[in-house]
């Protein structure tokens, strides 16, 4: 029961919702970079929310199923194919032994996910099955997948009912999003002019962006006076102001602490929009209150819960003897 990697693609790793509890030892949480896409995929499969999924960049892997299975693709539109025929993502599908999933080209977004019903059999490291590349631990032998890897699936004998996630549940991926933020602890160190520029001007995603952080190019922002601080806590979505006046958005593989001013935090609802950007894409920022940010957060959680419950119900009904 499993799948064979025919082509590895670019740095495809298994990720879950992160490894928690070891920050005091410098172990960062990691986890999927587009949490919405990954969680919707798991909901459609009837998996637990934190089940690991295969996170794929473009070029994405080519994968042959070595057993019958039920799977979901989600996230970026990488022109997915099943045995060469185009398939759309965001719905539950059946595959037979020997079927091949491939991706013909990047059409929108950057990161796609593969979830299988029953999950993947991976290595637990410190309570998480996700891959930590820096440590070389967790996931599939602590590394990105390679050609010839055989990855096993968990038990599953169910057939696939017709399950499709509503478009409205997915974030609206665009190469020029305006994302919402709440103020960070050092927001007030910026000049009024810089605070205004942050809200009015669009920035571009730089080439040296990865799972740790996205660097932005655009107008330089400046502190009112030279500002130094010692290392303190940061989070997924923290926007730091670097000494050269540029911004960096900390992403899923961010370190546990950082020493640059934290001027803002992108709200979790909009982080998937950032995750799906590629170098050259444009991004703008819009401030919201913490209260609004929390309301948006809980709205998505409610919608996802509804989807999860509905999928469970249908999957159970389908597989009732």
């Amino acid at each position: 029961m499993g799948m064979l990697i025919l082509k590895p693609g670019l740095l495809a790793t298994f990720q879950d919702l992160g490894r928690r509890g070891f920050g005091r030892f410098g172990v960062n949480p990691g986890g999927v970079i587009d949490t919405a896409a990954a969680r919707i995929a798991n909901a459609l499969c009837g998996n637990s929310d934190s089940e690991p999924v295969l996170e794929m960049n473009f070029p994405a892997p080519e994968i042959k199923f070595t057993s019958d299975c039920v799977f979901v693709l989600s996230g970026a539109d990488l022109d997915a194919r099943l045995n060469g025929s185009p398939i759309v993502s965001g719905r539950l599908r059946s595959a037979s032994v020997g079927d091949v999933v491939s991706f013909a080209g990047r059409r929108s977004g950057a990161i796609a996910y593969l979830a299988v019903r029953g999950g993947f059999l991976l290595e637990d490291w410190l309570g998480s099955l996700g891959t930590n590349l820096a440590a070389g631990m967790g996931g599939f032998h602590g590394r990105a997948v390679r050609k010839g890897d055989q990855v096993e699936f968990g038990e599953d004998h169910s057939a696939a009912p017709r399950l499709i996630a509503s478009h409205t549940l997915f974030p609206f991926y665009t190469p020029f999003p305006t994302v919402r933020f709440v103020r960070g602890p050092e927001h007030e160190i910026m000049t009024d002019r810089s605070a205004e520029v942050l809200r009015k001007i669009t920035f571009s995603v730089s080439a040296n962006s990865n799972r740790m952080g996205f660097r932005l190019s655009g107008p330089e922002l400046s502190p009112i006076e030279p500002f130094e601080m010692i290392s303190s806590g940061v989070n997924f979505g923290t926007i730091q102001l670097l000494p050269d006046g540029r911004l960096i958005i900390l992403m899923a593989d961010h370190q546990t602490t950082g020493g640059y001013p934290r001027i803002a935090t992108i709200i979790p609802t909009d982080l998937p929009l950032v995750a799906q950007l590629v170098p050259g894409d444009k991004i703008g920022f819009h401030e919201v209150t913490l209260e609004d940010a929390e309301n948006l957060f809980f709205e998505f959680e409610r919608d996802l819960n509804l989807l999860r419950t509905a999928c469970k119900f249908k999957l159970d009904a389908q597989n009732r003897p």
């Binding site: 303190s232 935090t265 913490l290």
Partner: peptide, 8 residues
């Protein structure tokens, strides 16, 4: 606050 799920 450091976003919605952490404080310093």
């Amino acid at each position: 606050p450091l976003g919605l799920d952490a404080v310093s």
